[in-house]
């Protein structure tokens, strides 16, 4: 790796974080709005955003908490959805300043998201902790602020608008899945298998006794397992 292009400027990190922060503002606005529409206190929604900082995981967590799901189900679902961060974390560790100590790493690792990872790992050369702190700061603030604004807006919406918001979360999920499935046949296949399994668990007598959180875990692990056996990834993944 090119040691001469070492990037460790806090301000440069802040600048690179602005587009991510703006994107997060709108997604977390939706999260805040939906959380309040589902009956969650606004403060709780903001607390989730400030402590978890992940989109799919938070939306899944929201629907599970509202359904009064068990702690083990919540923990396992978060693990399954967010396990991809482990891969990013490993990959990013090769990219960071070699002299980085454990303590700053533990701070930086809190801020690994799909987008922050993408920006940091496409920088040329190594990146340092100051740059990473700047890069994480703006999206973090955007994520928390958007949640607060969304929760506030959601509190003032009339009931008939709120009932239409129930579909928002699924609209977002579809917007994540479809473009990826369009570009990659394995992703299409994996998603299709997961959907078929999840429908079976919903409608087939006997299978429909399994609780929601576990259904998601079983379906997704089976579908991704089948996908990885059929289409292993030999080339660079991320």
């Amino acid at each position: 790796m090119d040691e001469s292009s070492y990037q460790n400027n806090f301000k440069q990190g802040l600048r690179d974080g602005v587009p991510i922060g703006l994107g997060y503002l709108s997604v977390s606005f939706t999260f805040g709005m939906m959380a309040v529409a589902a009956g969650m206190p606004a403060l709780c929604a903001i607390l989730i955003s400030m402590t978890t900082l992940t989109s799919a995981g938070q939306f899944a967590g929201l629907s599970m908490i509202v359904a009064s799901a068990g702690y083990l189900e919540i923990a396992l679902t978060q693990l399954v959805i967010n396990i991809r961060y482990s891969l990013m974390s490993l990959s990013l560790s090769q990219k960071l300043d070699r002299k980085l100590k454990t303590l700053p790493w533990l701070g930086i690792s809190f801020g690994i998201t799909d987008e922050i990872f993408a920006v940091a790992s496409t920088k040329s050369g190594r990146v340092g902790s100051k740059y990473m702190t700047g890069l994480i700061a703006v999206p973090y603030i955007g994520w928390a602020l958007g949640t607060a604004l969304g929760a506030l807006a959601g509190s003032f919406l009339p009931a008939m608008v709120q009932s239409a918001l129930g579909i928002a979360i699924y609209g977002m999920f579809i917007a994540i899945i479809v473009p990826a499935a369009k570009k990659s046949f394995p992703v299409f296949l994996v998603t299709a298998v997961a959907v078929i399994l999840s429908c079976l668990f919903r409608f087939v007598p006997g299978l429909n006794q399994v609780s929601g959180g576990f259904v998601i875990i079983i379906c997704s692990v089976a579908a991704a397992g089948i996908g990885s056996l059929c289409f292993p990834k030999k080339e660079e993944l991320l």
Partner: peptide, 13 residues
């Protein structure tokens, strides 16, 4: 690890 997020989202949707 690459496929799992899409599988989760599909099963949830």
């Amino acid at each position: 690890l690459e496929y799992i997020p899409y599988a989760v989202l599909g099963a949830m949707t």
